[in-house]
Amino acid sequence: MKRLEQAWYNHARWPLLLQPLEQLYLKLSAQDQRKKQAQQWQAPVPVLIVGNITVGGTGKSPLVATLVDYLRSKGWKPGIVSRGYGGKSSEYPLSVTTASDPKIAGDEPVMLAQLGCPVVVDPKRSTAAQSLLAEHDCDLIISDDGLQHLALGRDIELVVIDAARGLGNGHCLPVGPLREPKSRLQQVDYIFANGAEHTSQLEGQTLHPMQLKPTQWRQPASQATYPIQPLPFNESVQALAGIGNPERFFNTLRQLGLTVTGRPYPDHYQFQAQDLVSTEPLLMTAKDAVKCQAWLGAQHWVLDVRAHIATEILEQIHLDLLAAQARKQTSQGL
């Protein structure tokens, strides 16, 4: 898979040999989407989707965290639904807390539970959303991923793209990294380019800049937190990352003045104790840390980050949600 993924983003020509499979994928995907749309459930509260059209991570979960923080400051009571990718439970829907096992609930849901708002996972997002509303006092549903899960009706769709990787070669699986044709971007409400500094255009749509900004160092073993500067450890470090684009994390560390030896792993990788051995400080993401809790010691550090987007965009999303809420209340005769 790694060789194929590299080919997608290096614009190699040999994946074009897989075009018959791409056409089959598009046909089966369209059938699945029609089936889901026919079964679509409309929530009585606004639904905000944060997704992507490429395979792998792009920074959706940090954006979800930023949205939760901002929208709570505006009076919303959000809850989060997720597929729980990387986890496997014997029963769904599953409510997630900070004490949940990432092998059961998934790493991103456990990380998002640290925000202090309700989190429910289910491969069927609509079932997760119904459980969320039945068990918690929420007036807003935020779906971490789920752009392609049309069985859950939505009011606003946000897409996150990796600014460095873009859409790769622009083809759908398995020829390229796209889950859907790039024309799908013309139907969403907001597109964010993770890592971009300026507004740009893609497929005739505006790409809003988004950056993951470091907020603090955290030592999970002691629960101590430290400012980004001065560094609470030596400049020469090891770093592991089981995320969609590990180099993005390693480069962030280098920009902070660190000499980094990177250990890249596949997205949602299930770490083992031997992966955490290091004679130097070993740095990781918050997403990876939730899977490593049992083995973390004094040499292990987490770099906490937040997604930064323009305040006026956050405010516009808030206003869009208020409009969606008013429409739903009118349709319900409230």
Rank of each mutant, 00 (worst) to 15 (best):
Q216T: 00
Q216S: 03
W217F: 03
P220N: 04
A221E: 08
A221G: 04
S222P: 02
Q223E: 06
Q223T: 02
Q223R: 05
A224G: 00
T225M: 04
Y226R: 05
Y226M: 11
P227Y: 02
I228H: 01
I228R: 00
Q229V: 07
Q229A: 12
P230I: 08
P230D: 05
E235I: 04
E235F: 04
E235C: 06
E235P: 01
S236G: 01
V237H: 09
V237T: 12
A239R: 06
A241M: 06
A241Q: 07
G242K: 03
I243M: 00
G244D: 08
E247Y: 11
F250A: 10
F250C: 10
T252Y: 01
T252S: 12
Q255Y: 11
L256E: 13
L256F: 11
L256H: 08
G257F: 13
L258D: 04
T259C: 14
V260N: 00
V260W: 03
T261H: 03
T261R: 03
G262S: 14
R263K: 15
P264F: 10
P264R: 05
Y265L: 15
Y265A: 14
P266G: 13
P266A: 12
D267R: 03
Y269I: 02
Q270E: 14
F271C: 07
F271L: 09
F271T: 03
Q272D: 13
A273E: 13
A273N: 07
Q274D: 14
Q274M: 07
Q274L: 11
D275K: 02
D275C: 06
D275N: 12
L276C: 05
L276E: 02
V277G: 00
V277K: 10
S278C: 11
T279A: 14
E280M: 07
P281W: 12
L282G: 00
L283T: 02
M284Y: 06
D288C: 12
V290W: 07
Q293F: 00
A294P: 01
A294M: 04
L296Q: 07
L296E: 01
Q299Y: 00
W301N: 09
V302T: 10
V302W: 02
L303F: 08
V305A: 08
R306Y: 03
A307V: 13
A307E: 12
I309Y: 06
A310H: 15
T311I: 12
T311D: 15
E312H: 15
I313K: 08
E315Y: 12
E315F: 08
I317M: 08
L319H: 15
